[in-house]
Design a protein around this nucleic acid. Structure first.
Lengths: 244, 244
DNA sequence: GCGAAGAAAGTTGTCTGACAAGTAGACAAA
DNA sequence: TTTGTCTACTTGTCAGACAACTTTCTTCGC
């Protein structure tokens, strides 16, 4: 646990964010039911003792997130389908239990991506994967940080799955959780051989994809992600434990 | 009970949305580079010939979407990592090739969710799944629309996976693609027996989860989703074809 | 000349008041 | 009951002002 993140200690408070956060909670908690009309802007500005401009800005955020829809003259309404069109991880998910949840989702999607990449990758896509792998090797030899190349490697595999949606989703998750690769590539991680272990797992995965061996790719991807979780002290239970 | 969900044929234009759309395009197209400072609010309000309030509301949306960050006194800046923290499907994805991509992602995540639900579901969660199944039966008997119950069924299984992230993601994908269930539950679909076929698949999946049989749950979920895709005329290739 | 303190200009955040555009409910007329 | 009108209400937009904060420039002491 290396929490090098100091998010909002020094950030000056913004009224519109506070108001937005309160409304957000009320909506998600069900205090305002879907389809129900929100109090008017004037009413809210009274309740929170802020100007209408602040309320409007807060509601603008909620509208952008798909939680609220407003109609001129009628009012603002809680969306019938909360947050349609947008998926977000939510802050603070990258720690404690959240890490396990994210790793499990990564395991599911990235293993599937690896299988499909083994089947469908084009020579060009294989080249991109190989390039990321090579950059990791260079970083390892020189004792530099290979976290970015690590990131690229995973994203390149997902991109080679032939499904752009999978590619984008893996990129999203990986970005969201990029901090998780830091311990492996830190000075301590390198000295403890974590980076080298990760490199070997990556190579096995690459070779399986290069060979077009779906089953080997599945196993290599699963082994790698479980090991990566282990390097963070997270144990991901898997229904396939007997097979993997 | 009035379902006022007509597609808003002629939505009155909202200035803030138009301004926001223009800025959105400029940022995504790279006209404003990541990290670069945006023109000031005053400048933008001049350019678009709108009030500063409109510009602020537009920027508030972009901030909510993670495209822009602003600092009081300094200005508004294009985010270094565009849209970090948010995943969206993008419009128009639910047709043509997009349907295949979404179905493949659904297949991956929902099959995994079914496996985990078979392992981890609590009696309460099983009850929720059973309830959705029962509602589908009622709808089928009465010739009513069971699409909502169908939706609930899938989401309930994902929720029973024990991983809230999976639950939310399936809810997201399913919502995004809710139109896909319509053909099954339409009058024509019911008369052609599509709804009945779907019901049988659902029941098999439910029983596998109730019995805690991981392998059966996996197969039932896969079979159901592939059949569902087939009912839409989509053929999803799967690396597990030999096994399933 | 140079570094530091301070002034000045510029920018976002918030407040206030006002009017335009659009909606919903009441009420009267047919 | 149906229809049309009216009125109160709500959101959308505008304008101007000030506060809070950042950046840049100026000035002063050395």
């Amino acid at each position: 646990m290396t929490p090098d993140r100091l998010p909002r200690i020094l950030r000056p408070h913004r009224l519109s964010e506070e108001v937005g956060a309160v409304l957000d909670r009320r909506i998600r908690s069900g205090a305002f039911a879907p389809g129900e009309r929100l109090p008017t802007e004037a009413r809210l500005s009274e309740e929170f003792e802020v100007s209408r401009a602040v309320v409007r800005e807060a509601i603008a955020r909620l509208k952008a997130e798909g939680l609220v829809e407003s109609r001129q003259g009628a009012g603002a309404f809680v969306a019938r389908r909360l947050g349609a069109g947008i998926f977000r991880m939510g802050p603070g998910l990258a720690e404690a239990d959240g890490a396990l949840d994210i790793f499990e989702l990564r395991l599911i999607v990235e293993v599937a991506a690896a299988e499909r990449a083994a089947l469908r990758r084009t020579p060009e896509q294989l080249e991109v994967i190989a390039s990321a792998l090579a950059r990791m090797d260079v970083a390892l030899d020189r004792g530099e940080d290979g976290a970015t190349a690590d990131d690229d490697f995973h994203c390149a595999i997902a991109a080679a799955s032939g499904n752009p949606l999978i590619g984008r989703f893996v990129a999203f998750v990986s970005q969201e959780f990029s901090a998780s690769r830091a311990p492996t590539w830190s000075a301590e991680g390198v000295s403890r051989g974590l980076a080298r272990a990760a490199r070997d797992e990556h190579r096995a995965l690459f070779e399986a994809i290069a060979a077009g061996d779906v089953e080997a790719a599945r196993q290599a991807a699963q082994r790698h992600l479980l090991s990566a979780a282990g390097r963070l002290g997270v144990v991901v239970p898997t229904p396939h434990a007997a097979r993997g």
